[in-house]
């Protein structure tokens, strides 16, 4: 039976007159890895800080493992582990000292601290660096130490705010593997704006834009809903002016990419025959026509720019071209 580990409803957070979060709500079940997507400034970090009990919401409720974070923050915080954007590292401590310290703060029973520290270092690949000062560790290892402090007390819920930013590709792969392993035992909420990361680590996705949840589904579900988007990539030897392309009916968005254009058709229409026809008759000399690969990126763009309306789509497209 699935258990709800994170339950957020009608969560609003104002900073003065600005609404950072506008009545958002979602749930994460036990063992799930939920991807939390959104452009910069969408409210991801605010939501995560509220969930971690650092920030109080203006309105709404937050329950973690059944405990009310607003009414009973001390008890509820025992159920969460939080990795903020910058890992909360004490430079002057060794990895072992650091984790021992935080284990005590997270109320791990004294007799079990040693075991918990050893176990967590093992899980996060920190065994070899146990007695080195955090100051002297590379960014990847500091990040691991940050994740280690988030799981040292085996919390029901782990909240990770952009855990792979600034790491090299090998480190990223290792951290992602670690996150995948965390799911199952813990419930994980992972914020990121790296979309392939979501595909590799998450079961579900919530997309936030301008303080609102605009999608909340499984990956497959999202892709199914978005299948009408069907973007493709075209490249010509003698490409036409952007104006001419934009006048072709049935095109929602045009984006420059690697010497060609990624074209997103308007829902329900298919501009490909017309494009091919014109390529042939007007001497554009078509070289390439392939489906655009990163469909998740398109879903994301679609979701986070949807509210701008059809009129602004063209403006948006030309803006992207000129930049």
């Amino acid at each position: 039976m699935p258990e709800t580990m994170i339950e957020i409803s009608e969560l609003t957070r104002n900073y003065g007159p600005t609404k950072a979060l506008d009545a958002i709500g979602f749930q994460v079940q036990r063992g799930e890895v939920m991807g939390f997507l959104g452009p910069n400034g969408a409210g991801k970090t605010t939501a995560m800080r509220i969930l971690a009990g650092i920030l109080a919401p203006t309105e709404g409720s937050v329950h973690v493992a059944g405990l009310d974070m607003i009414a009973n923050p001390v008890a509820a915080r025992a159920k969460i582990g939080f990795l903020p954007e910058t890992p909360p590292i004490y430079d002057e401590m060794t990895v072992r000292e650091y984790l021992t310290y935080l284990a005590a703060l997270r109320r791990v029973p004294r007799a079990r601290i040693r075991l918990a520290v050893d176990h967590t270092m093992d899980r996060c690949g920190l065994k070899a660096t146990a007695d080195r000062l955090l100051r002297n560790l590379s960014k990847g290892y500091r990040q691991r130490a940050g994740i280690a402090q988030a799981i040292i007390h085996s919390p029901e819920v782990v909240i990770l705010d952009e855990p792979t930013v600034g790491l090299d590709p090998i480190q990223i792969r290792e951290i992602r593997q670690l996150i995948r392993d965390l799911g199952g035992e813990h419930s994980v909420l992972l914020s990121t704006h790296i979309l392939p990361e979501v595909r590799m680590t998450c079961n579900r996705v919530a997309v936030i834009n301008q303080g609102r949840i605009v999608a909340n589904d499984t990956l497959e579900g999202l892709e199914q809903k978005a299948s009408g988007i069907g973007s493709f990539f075209m490249r010509w030897n003698h490409p036409p002016d952007l104006d001419i392309l934009q006048q072709i009916p049935g095109i929602a968005r045009i984006k420059a990419r690697e010497g060609g254009w990624t074209i997103t058709p308007a829902p329900g229409s298919d501009p490909i025959p017309e494009l091919v026809h014109r390529s042939a008759t007007q001497g554009w000399d078509l070289r390439e026509l392939v489906p655009a690969g990163e469909s998740l990126e398109e879903i994301f763009l679609h979701l986070t720019t949807r509210e701008e309306g059809a009129d602004t789509v063209a403006a948006y497209a030309s803006e992207e071209v000129s930049s």
């Binding site: 971690a52 650092i54 001390v74 915080r77 969460i80 903020p84 590292i89 703060l105």
Partner: peptide
């Protein structure tokens, strides 16, 4: 400044 405050503030401490 170091960001360690988040580790303390998210701990079960009053």
């Amino acid at each position: 400044r170091r960001g360690t405050w988040a580790a303390i503030a998210s701990s079960p401490l009053s």
